Simulated scan of single mutants.
Amino acid sequence: MLDVSEDVRAEIGDTEADRLLAGDSAPGSYDCTSCRTPGNSEQERTSTVLFVGDETAVLAFAHATCIPSQVVQVAEDQLQGAVRSITGDEHGGAALPQNIPGGQAVLGITSGLVLIDGDLHPALVVEPTGAIARPGTDGSQGDEFLQLLVEQGFHSVHRMEERPAALPGWSILLAMGQLHAVLQPGTDGGAPVAWWQAHTPLQVTEGWRTAAGKSQTVLVYAAPAGTIGQQPREDLMRDALDKAAAEGLLVAAAMPLAGT
Protein backbone atom coordinates (compact mmCIF):
# COMPACT_ATOMS: atom_id res chain seq x y z
CA MET A 1 0.00 0.00 0.00
CA LEU A 2 2.97 2.25 -0.72
CA ASP A 3 2.79 5.24 -3.07
CA VAL A 4 5.96 6.18 -4.98
CA SER A 5 5.57 9.28 -7.15
CA GLU A 6 7.30 9.61 -10.48
CA ASP A 7 9.55 12.31 -9.04
CA VAL A 8 10.63 10.05 -6.17
CA ARG A 9 11.17 7.18 -8.61
CA ALA A 10 13.35 9.40 -10.78
CA GLU A 11 15.52 10.22 -7.78
CA ILE A 12 15.88 6.76 -6.23
CA GLY A 13 15.87 4.74 -9.47
CA ASP A 14 13.53 2.07 -10.82
CA THR A 15 15.21 -0.77 -8.94
CA GLU A 16 14.76 0.74 -5.48
CA ALA A 17 11.27 1.99 -6.34
CA ASP A 18 10.24 -1.49 -7.47
CA ARG A 19 11.72 -3.02 -4.29
CA LEU A 20 9.66 -0.60 -2.21
CA LEU A 21 6.47 -1.37 -4.11
CA ALA A 22 7.13 -5.11 -3.86
CA GLY A 23 7.48 -4.77 -0.09
CA ASP A 24 11.14 -5.82 -0.01
CA SER A 25 12.23 -2.54 1.58
CA ALA A 26 8.88 -1.15 2.69
CA PRO A 27 8.95 0.50 6.11
CA GLY A 28 6.26 -1.58 7.83
CA SER A 29 5.56 0.58 10.86
CA TYR A 30 6.81 4.17 10.86
CA ASP A 31 6.27 7.62 12.33
CA CYS A 32 4.54 9.85 9.78
CA THR A 33 6.92 12.60 8.73
CA SER A 34 3.96 14.98 8.46
CA CYS A 35 1.74 14.46 11.50
CA ARG A 36 4.28 12.50 13.60
CA THR A 37 1.79 9.80 14.57
CA PRO A 38 2.38 6.06 13.92
CA GLY A 39 1.55 4.50 10.58
CA ASN A 40 1.78 1.09 8.97
CA SER A 41 2.36 0.62 5.26
CA GLU A 42 0.83 -2.85 5.40
CA GLN A 43 -2.48 -1.52 6.71
CA GLU A 44 -2.92 1.96 5.20
CA ARG A 45 -1.81 3.87 2.14
CA THR A 46 1.62 5.34 2.74
CA SER A 47 3.52 8.04 0.83
CA THR A 48 7.26 7.91 0.24
CA VAL A 49 8.79 11.35 0.86
CA LEU A 50 12.35 11.93 -0.28
CA PHE A 51 14.27 14.75 1.42
CA VAL A 52 17.13 15.81 -0.85
CA GLY A 53 20.14 17.98 -0.02
CA ASP A 54 23.18 18.78 -2.15
CA GLU A 55 24.85 15.45 -1.41
CA THR A 56 22.50 13.59 0.92
CA ALA A 57 19.04 12.11 0.43
CA VAL A 58 16.78 10.66 3.11
CA LEU A 59 13.70 8.57 2.38
CA ALA A 60 10.90 9.06 4.90
CA PHE A 61 7.29 7.89 5.07
CA ALA A 62 3.95 9.56 5.69
CA HIS A 63 0.26 8.74 5.74
CA ALA A 64 -1.06 9.25 2.22
CA THR A 65 -3.91 11.21 3.81
CA CYS A 66 -1.36 13.69 5.23
CA ILE A 67 0.83 14.42 2.21
CA PRO A 68 1.38 12.86 -1.21
CA SER A 69 4.57 11.11 -2.26
CA GLN A 70 7.01 13.85 -3.23
CA VAL A 71 10.58 15.14 -3.30
CA VAL A 72 11.40 17.91 -0.80
CA GLN A 73 14.51 20.04 -1.26
CA VAL A 74 16.36 20.68 2.02
CA ALA A 75 19.63 22.54 2.64
CA GLU A 76 22.50 20.06 2.98
CA ASP A 77 23.61 21.21 6.44
CA GLN A 78 20.08 20.88 7.74
CA LEU A 79 19.70 17.44 6.23
CA GLN A 80 23.01 16.31 7.70
CA GLY A 81 21.80 17.40 11.12
CA ALA A 82 18.58 15.52 10.58
CA VAL A 83 20.41 12.38 9.50
CA ARG A 84 22.42 12.35 12.72
CA SER A 85 19.24 12.22 14.78
CA ILE A 86 16.99 10.11 12.58
CA THR A 87 15.49 7.10 14.31
CA GLY A 88 14.66 3.97 12.36
CA ASP A 89 12.30 1.20 13.40
CA GLU A 90 13.03 -2.51 13.23
CA HIS A 91 11.69 -2.69 9.69
CA GLY A 92 14.08 -0.04 8.42
CA GLY A 93 11.56 2.78 8.17
CA ALA A 94 12.72 6.21 9.23
CA ALA A 95 11.30 9.69 9.60
CA LEU A 96 12.91 13.08 9.89
CA PRO A 97 13.08 14.36 13.47
CA GLN A 98 10.67 17.03 14.62
CA ASN A 99 13.31 19.74 15.03
CA ILE A 100 15.25 20.31 11.83
CA PRO A 101 18.03 22.82 12.59
CA GLY A 102 18.09 26.17 10.84
CA GLY A 103 14.39 26.92 10.74
CA GLN A 104 13.21 24.63 7.97
CA ALA A 105 10.60 21.94 8.38
CA VAL A 106 7.90 20.53 6.16
CA LEU A 107 4.63 22.43 6.48
CA GLY A 108 1.61 20.17 6.63
CA ILE A 109 -1.69 21.66 5.45
CA THR A 110 -5.17 20.32 6.14
CA SER A 111 -8.33 21.70 4.53
CA GLY A 112 -11.70 21.84 6.23
CA LEU A 113 -14.77 23.95 6.91
CA VAL A 114 -15.14 25.99 10.09
CA LEU A 115 -18.40 27.42 11.43
CA ILE A 116 -18.35 31.11 12.37
CA ASP A 117 -21.52 33.10 13.08
CA GLY A 118 -23.66 30.40 11.52
CA ASP A 119 -21.72 30.34 8.23
CA LEU A 120 -19.32 27.70 6.98
CA HIS A 121 -15.98 29.11 5.90
CA PRO A 122 -13.29 27.28 3.90
CA ALA A 123 -10.17 26.97 6.03
CA LEU A 124 -6.61 25.69 5.86
CA VAL A 125 -4.76 24.56 8.96
CA VAL A 126 -0.97 24.85 8.75
CA GLU A 127 1.25 22.90 11.12
CA PRO A 128 4.97 22.26 10.61
CA THR A 129 6.50 18.86 11.25
CA GLY A 130 8.92 20.32 13.76
CA ALA A 131 9.97 23.37 15.71
CA ILE A 132 10.80 26.39 13.56
CA ALA A 133 13.88 28.45 14.43
CA ARG A 134 14.41 31.99 13.26
CA PRO A 135 16.55 31.97 10.09
CA GLY A 136 20.19 32.57 10.88
CA THR A 137 19.95 31.28 14.45
CA ASP A 138 20.87 27.94 15.99
CA GLY A 139 17.36 27.28 17.30
CA SER A 140 18.32 27.79 20.94
CA GLN A 141 15.48 30.29 21.34
CA GLY A 142 12.93 27.53 20.84
CA ASP A 143 10.02 27.33 18.43
CA GLU A 144 9.41 30.76 16.88
CA PHE A 145 6.89 29.67 14.24
CA LEU A 146 4.00 31.76 15.61
CA GLN A 147 6.15 34.83 16.29
CA LEU A 148 7.52 34.74 12.74
CA LEU A 149 3.96 34.63 11.36
CA VAL A 150 2.83 37.47 13.62
CA GLU A 151 5.69 39.52 12.19
CA GLN A 152 4.31 38.72 8.74
CA GLY A 153 0.89 40.07 9.70
CA PHE A 154 -0.96 37.06 11.11
CA HIS A 155 -3.05 37.76 14.24
CA SER A 156 -3.37 35.72 17.40
CA VAL A 157 -6.67 33.87 17.74
CA HIS A 158 -8.21 33.66 21.19
CA ARG A 159 -11.75 32.69 20.18
CA MET A 160 -12.67 30.70 17.07
CA GLU A 161 -15.96 32.65 16.90
CA GLU A 162 -14.02 35.65 15.60
CA ARG A 163 -13.33 35.81 11.86
CA PRO A 164 -9.61 36.40 11.14
CA ALA A 165 -8.60 39.73 9.61
CA ALA A 166 -7.41 39.95 6.02
CA LEU A 167 -3.67 39.78 5.36
CA PRO A 168 -2.75 42.16 2.49
CA GLY A 169 -0.63 40.70 -0.27
CA TRP A 170 -1.20 37.06 0.69
CA SER A 171 -3.50 34.77 -1.30
CA ILE A 172 -4.51 31.16 -1.95
CA LEU A 173 -3.79 29.67 -5.36
CA LEU A 174 -6.61 27.34 -6.30
CA ALA A 175 -6.59 26.05 -9.88
CA MET A 176 -8.76 23.43 -11.55
CA GLY A 177 -10.43 22.87 -8.20
CA GLN A 178 -7.16 21.88 -6.51
CA LEU A 179 -4.96 23.63 -3.96
CA HIS A 180 -1.60 24.64 -5.39
CA ALA A 181 0.00 27.19 -3.08
CA VAL A 182 -0.20 29.82 -0.38
CA LEU A 183 1.32 32.98 -1.86
CA GLN A 184 3.04 35.81 -0.01
CA PRO A 185 4.16 39.23 -1.27
CA GLY A 186 7.35 39.31 -3.30
CA THR A 187 10.31 41.39 -2.19
CA ASP A 188 10.46 45.07 -3.22
CA GLY A 189 6.96 44.94 -4.65
CA GLY A 190 7.73 42.05 -6.96
CA ALA A 191 5.42 39.24 -8.01
CA PRO A 192 3.99 37.04 -5.23
CA VAL A 193 6.06 34.02 -4.27
CA ALA A 194 5.04 30.70 -2.74
CA TRP A 195 5.20 30.58 1.06
CA TRP A 196 3.91 27.00 0.81
CA GLN A 197 3.60 25.04 -2.43
CA ALA A 198 2.10 21.62 -3.03
CA HIS A 199 4.47 19.31 -4.88
CA THR A 200 1.35 17.66 -6.23
CA PRO A 201 -1.86 19.76 -6.24
CA LEU A 202 -4.00 18.81 -3.24
CA GLN A 203 -7.58 17.72 -3.60
CA VAL A 204 -10.21 19.57 -1.59
CA THR A 205 -13.81 18.51 -1.02
CA GLU A 206 -16.67 19.76 -3.17
CA GLY A 207 -18.11 21.49 -0.11
CA TRP A 208 -14.82 23.30 0.48
CA ARG A 209 -14.60 24.42 -3.16
CA THR A 210 -18.20 25.61 -3.10
CA ALA A 211 -17.66 27.64 0.07
CA ALA A 212 -14.42 29.10 -1.30
CA GLY A 213 -16.10 30.01 -4.58
CA LYS A 214 -18.91 31.73 -2.71
CA SER A 215 -16.75 33.79 -0.35
CA GLN A 216 -13.63 34.09 -2.54
CA THR A 217 -11.75 33.98 0.77
CA VAL A 218 -9.96 31.25 2.71
CA LEU A 219 -9.23 31.39 6.44
CA VAL A 220 -5.69 30.21 7.20
CA TYR A 221 -4.92 29.02 10.73
CA ALA A 222 -1.43 28.10 11.91
CA ALA A 223 -0.22 26.35 15.06
CA PRO A 224 3.11 24.96 16.32
CA ALA A 225 4.11 21.36 15.61
CA GLY A 226 2.07 18.82 17.55
CA THR A 227 -0.76 21.22 18.43
CA ILE A 228 -3.53 20.23 16.01
CA GLY A 229 -2.48 16.92 14.46
CA GLN A 230 -4.11 15.12 11.56
CA GLN A 231 -7.75 15.00 12.60
CA PRO A 232 -9.99 12.53 10.73
CA ARG A 233 -13.15 14.67 11.06
CA GLU A 234 -13.89 18.38 10.85
CA ASP A 235 -15.55 18.42 14.28
CA LEU A 236 -12.37 17.01 15.82
CA MET A 237 -10.30 19.55 13.91
CA ARG A 238 -12.53 22.32 15.30
CA ASP A 239 -12.10 20.96 18.83
CA ALA A 240 -8.32 21.02 18.36
CA LEU A 241 -8.47 24.58 17.01
CA ASP A 242 -10.62 25.71 19.95
CA LYS A 243 -8.11 24.19 22.37
CA ALA A 244 -5.14 25.77 20.58
CA ALA A 245 -6.85 29.17 20.61
CA ALA A 246 -7.63 28.89 24.31
CA GLU A 247 -3.98 28.07 25.01
CA GLY A 248 -2.68 30.97 22.91
CA LEU A 249 -1.16 28.66 20.31
CA LEU A 250 -3.07 29.77 17.22
CA VAL A 251 -2.66 32.56 14.67
CA ALA A 252 -4.75 33.20 11.58
CA ALA A 253 -5.41 35.40 8.58
CA ALA A 254 -8.03 35.65 5.85
CA MET A 255 -6.70 35.40 2.29
CA PRO A 256 -8.42 35.89 -1.07
CA LEU A 257 -8.38 33.32 -3.83
CA ALA A 258 -5.77 33.87 -6.51
CA GLY A 259 -7.33 31.27 -8.81
CA THR A 260 -10.59 29.57 -9.61
Score class of each variant (00 low, 15 high):
19 R>A: 11
142 G>D: 14
213 G>Q: 14
239 D>F: 05
217 T>R: 03
119 D>G: 03
205 T>I: 05
186 G>L: 08
121 H>S: 09
241 L>P: 04
185 P>V: 09
255 M>L: 14
156 S>L: 12
197 Q>L: 10
141 Q>M: 01
238 R>D: 10
168 P>G: 07
138 D>Y: 05
182 V>P: 02
49 V>L: 02
152 Q>H: 11
108 G>F: 01
155 H>C: 13
12 I>A: 06
88 G>H: 09
239 D>C: 03
213 G>C: 06
187 T>A: 12
222 A>F: 09
217 T>K: 05
169 G>H: 10
2 L>C: 12
195 W>Q: 09
167 L>V: 09
256 P>S: 04
1 M>P: 03
138 D>I: 05
169 G>Q: 02
162 E>A: 11
247 E>T: 12
192 P>N: 09
251 V>T: 04
108 G>W: 03
253 A>L: 05
78 Q>S: 15
116 I>W: 01
70 Q>W: 01
100 I>P: 00
142 G>V: 11
123 A>M: 10
244 A>F: 06
85 S>P: 00
21 L>W: 05
26 A>H: 00
118 G>Y: 04
199 H>A: 15
203 Q>V: 12
250 L>G: 08
91 H>E: 11
74 V>E: 13
174 L>Q: 03
83 V>I: 05
82 A>V: 13
136 G>S: 08
34 S>P: 01
93 G>Y: 01
129 T>H: 13
31 D>Y: 00
30 Y>S: 09
221 Y>W: 14
244 A>D: 03
16 E>Y: 13
137 T>N: 05
183 L>Y: 07
135 P>D: 12
61 F>T: 10
209 R>P: 01
135 P>Y: 09
64 A>Q: 13
102 G>K: 02
144 E>K: 10
176 M>Y: 10
161 E>Y: 00
89 D>Y: 06
11 E>S: 06
69 S>I: 04
147 Q>T: 15
62 A>T: 09
53 G>I: 07
56 T>I: 11
162 E>K: 06
166 A>Q: 13
15 T>C: 02
110 T>M: 03
163 R>K: 15
28 G>F: 02
153 G>N: 04
155 H>P: 01
194 A>D: 15
90 E>P: 00
59 L>R: 08
149 L>F: 04
110 T>R: 13
186 G>A: 06
214 K>N: 07
45 R>M: 02
91 H>R: 14
115 L>C: 11
229 G>F: 10
34 S>L: 06
14 D>M: 01
173 L>A: 14
6 E>A: 15
66 C>Q: 09
140 S>A: 14
64 A>S: 15
87 T>R: 08
144 E>M: 09
15 T>G: 00
46 T>E: 04
59 L>T: 05
23 G>N: 10
218 V>W: 00
102 G>R: 01
1 M>L: 09
216 Q>K: 15
82 A>C: 15
229 G>P: 06
106 V>M: 13
70 Q>A: 15
24 D>G: 00
154 F>G: 02
99 N>A: 13
244 A>H: 04
219 L>Q: 07
67 I>D: 09
184 Q>T: 15
153 G>T: 08
238 R>W: 05
32 C>G: 08
211 A>R: 06
196 W>R: 14
136 G>D: 08
134 R>H: 08
42 E>Y: 03
217 T>I: 12
123 A>I: 10
116 I>E: 02
112 G>Q: 03
241 L>N: 10
